[in-house]
Amino acid sequence: MNNQEKKTIVFSKGIPGFEEEKTFLFGLEEGAPLAKLDAVNNQEISFVLLQSQMFFPEYLSEVDLTPDEMELLGIDTGDKLDVWSIMTISLSNMSKSTVNLRAPLLLNFRTNKGIQIILSDENYSFRQQVFADAHNASEAEPVKEGAVG
């Protein structure tokens, strides 16, 4: 299946925290703006990515890249970058999962190169709640005795 096809992406500087891993496999998930990014040489290293622009239309419509960053992505005129954000999934309560908007991944599928950049705009959160109702109690509170009637 075409959607399931994985693409090799080279992060020549690695990804912060995993600087030694340079080569990753990027695979789109079907039916959702999600993708997996797996380190080729270490099965233990796997990220879930969210295409945050789908939910945040104005997010990163424009970004200033340094010459270094442009070189790492092998950017040429006309290249269009993919923007993905790393999700931190809370296994105990998935509705509390967050996404890192401050440090997006930029992928250039023409050159198959990627980087994780850190935005200087402090308004973007490292831990943006993904699910709108995350701050509401997701598990119904038991009704207190005497509260009814």
């Binding site: 995993f18 999600l34 796997s46 296994l91 998935m94 999962s97 993904v130």
Partner: peptide
């Protein structure tokens, strides 16, 4: 944060992504 993100995805990969899709499809965002 990246290390934390990786440790969250180690377990039950398929189950996690199925559940995520379901949640993304409904509640958003």
């Amino acid at each position: 944060l990246n290390r934390e993100a990786v440790s969250g995805t180690k377990l039950q990969d398929q189950e996690v992504s199925d559940r995520l899709k379901e949640m993304l499809g409904s509640t958003l965002l």
